[in-house]
Computed example of a mutant assay.
Amino acid sequence: MSTDAQDQSEIFNGTANVGLKDHRSVDGTDTRAIPAFVFGEELADLAEHDPRIVVLTADLGRSNRATDFAARHPDRFFNVGIAEKNMITVAAGMASCGRLPFAATFGSFAALLGAEQIRTDCAYPNMPVRIVGHHSGISMGFYGTSHHSLEDIGMMRCIADLTVVCATDANHLRALLRASLDHPGAMYIRLGRGRDPQVHDAVPDIEIGRALTVRDGSDLTVIATGSEVHPALQAAESLAADGFSTRVVDMFTVSPIDRDAVLHAARSTGAILTVEEGNLTNGLGTAVAECLFEAGIRIPFRRHGVPDEHVPVGPPAALYAHYRLDGPGIAGVARELLTCERPE
């Protein structure tokens, strides 16, 4: 079979009319605002001034738009084929020789297949490798459990000396890539579902390890990360109509978490709700709970995400609604927390 015949990038990028996504998953989205589409372009721009940057992919250069980097820097682009573990080890070797490698593949493959290599080859020897897990969470929809990336945050935050960050939208991804250039040690960069609406009108000024408050409020703080920041803002608007003042914090650095931001939220608002597109076990919600427990703070608190189960197959938009990870769903969970109600 030819390479062209095997190329699935149009499906993963949402441009093929193959009936794998419902209309809510793709309507009205400018591809320039999709994180996977700016990844290669931004790194190509940065590489013009930083000769250390190299990009590796495991046969998914078109899906993650690393091809945009390859077009401008072909001698610094490496497709290792369908060999994710090897890709990460190769990246670690390059880092040991003074390069700054960005190794990209689906989040499920990067974290689950490459966990040992990320820990032993990258984090343990303090190699500046950036592992990029794109199409994370349940964004792969119809491709099922093998492609759903629900465990990656929980797994990655257990690895010592590994920074774990989640991109909120395209502009935020640009900021993360720029901030990563001189950040010490290894990093896991989690990209969203590939259809993340814009949260930031421009590239934000960020500091890895410091959360961003994207909306202020006093009754409730929603601490969200990655693709869930935008629906958290939608939920805050809905709650405002009910008279609830909701703060939204973008906790884009999951490890090390911004403990001060968590404690400030607990002391200045009435409740905390965490929202993440992943398994609740050991995820963002657990990290926030650890901060509260260790500080001895008792406050109405709830974790919200995917329960500890295998997600069914279906279009992404339907899955977000099913798990109440869209705007209306988050608003409903928040109302239950604020009114001390629990679903039957």
Score class of each variant (00 low, 15 high):
residue 13 N to H: 00
residue 14 G to C: 05
residue 14 G to M: 09
residue 19 G to K: 03
residue 20 L to H: 02
residue 20 L to S: 01
residue 25 S to T: 12
residue 28 G to I: 04
residue 29 T to F: 11
residue 31 T to D: 14
residue 38 V to Q: 06
residue 38 V to E: 01
residue 39 F to Q: 01
residue 40 G to W: 00
residue 46 L to I: 11
residue 48 E to D: 14
residue 48 E to A: 11
residue 50 D to C: 03
residue 57 T to E: 14
residue 59 D to W: 04
residue 64 N to Y: 06
residue 67 T to N: 10
residue 69 F to P: 02
residue 73 H to I: 02
residue 76 R to W: 02
residue 85 K to F: 10
residue 86 N to H: 09
residue 86 N to K: 03
residue 87 M to W: 03
residue 92 A to P: 03
residue 95 A to Q: 05
residue 97 C to Q: 11
residue 101 P to K: 03
residue 109 F to R: 11
residue 110 A to C: 11
residue 111 A to F: 10
residue 116 E to T: 11
residue 117 Q to F: 03
residue 118 I to T: 10
residue 118 I to W: 05
residue 126 N to A: 13
residue 127 M to G: 03
residue 127 M to K: 14
residue 129 V to P: 11
residue 132 V to N: 03
residue 133 G to M: 04
residue 140 M to P: 12
residue 140 M to D: 08
residue 140 M to I: 04
residue 151 E to K: 05
residue 153 I to H: 09
residue 156 M to K: 11
residue 158 C to L: 15
residue 159 I to N: 11
residue 161 D to A: 13
residue 166 C to V: 12
residue 169 D to S: 07
residue 170 A to F: 08
residue 174 R to H: 01
residue 178 R to M: 11
residue 180 S to K: 00
residue 182 D to F: 13
residue 184 P to Q: 05
residue 187 M to L: 15
residue 195 R to T: 07
residue 195 R to K: 08
residue 195 R to D: 08
residue 197 P to S: 03
residue 200 H to I: 02
residue 200 H to W: 07
residue 202 A to D: 14
residue 205 D to T: 13
residue 205 D to G: 03
residue 206 I to C: 09
residue 206 I to W: 04
residue 210 R to K: 15
residue 210 R to C: 05
residue 212 L to D: 12
residue 214 V to W: 01
residue 220 L to S: 14
residue 220 L to R: 09
residue 226 G to Y: 05
residue 227 S to R: 08
residue 238 S to T: 14
residue 242 D to S: 13
residue 242 D to Y: 06
residue 248 V to D: 13
residue 249 V to N: 09
residue 254 V to W: 04
residue 257 I to W: 12
residue 261 A to I: 05
residue 263 L to E: 00
residue 265 A to F: 03
residue 270 G to Q: 07
residue 271 A to M: 10
residue 273 L to C: 12
residue 279 N to Y: 00
residue 284 L to H: 09
residue 286 T to K: 03
residue 286 T to G: 14
residue 287 A to Q: 04
residue 288 V to A: 04
residue 291 C to H: 07
residue 299 I to N: 13
residue 299 I to M: 09
residue 306 V to S: 07
residue 309 E to M: 12
residue 315 P to G: 06
residue 324 R to Q: 15
residue 327 G to F: 08
residue 327 G to A: 15
residue 334 A to T: 04
residue 334 A to Q: 12
residue 340 C to V: 02
residue 341 E to W: 13
residue 343 P to C: 02
